[in-house]
């Protein structure tokens, strides 16, 4: 019973992956969207940064970076709590 359940879920998952591969969009389409055109054209004038990726990460989408930093902070705090030297 367990084995049949496992086999069925494996087949369904494999079907999803194969369908996703068959109906994949052609490479490079859509070529540009309004959003990345805005970022590419305005990053040098608004943020004065040559690196558009950094301009997005630290300026346009700073909240995402703050969340990323919070994830790192939580990971470090968790490791420090679990693996610190036990007192007493």
């Amino acid at each position: 019973m367990k084995r049949w359940l496992f086999l069925a879920s494996l087949l369904i998952l494999a079907g999803y992956f194969i369908a996703g591969g068959v109906w994949l969009r052609p490479f490079g389409e859509p070529a540009r969207s309004e959003m990345d055109r805005y970022f590419i054209e305005h990053a040098q004038t608004e943020v004065a940064a040559n690196n558009v990726v950094t301009a997005i990460v630290f300026d346009y989408r700073g909240y995402d970076t703050l969340g990323e930093a919070t994830v790192l902070f939580a990971a470090v705090v968790g490791v420090a709590l679990l693996l610190r030297r036990a007192r007493g």
């Binding site: 943020v47 004065a48 301009a55 630290f58 300026d59 970076t65 930093a69 790192l72 902070f73 990971a75």
Partner: peptide, 19 residues
């Protein structure tokens, strides 16, 4: 150039180095 971006890079860099 780039205003607060280099400073933020250093802040995040220190955070990642130390963490």
């Amino acid at each position: 150039t780039a205003g607060t971006l280099p400073l933020m890079n250093w802040a995040v860099g220190f955070k990642v180095i130390a963490g």
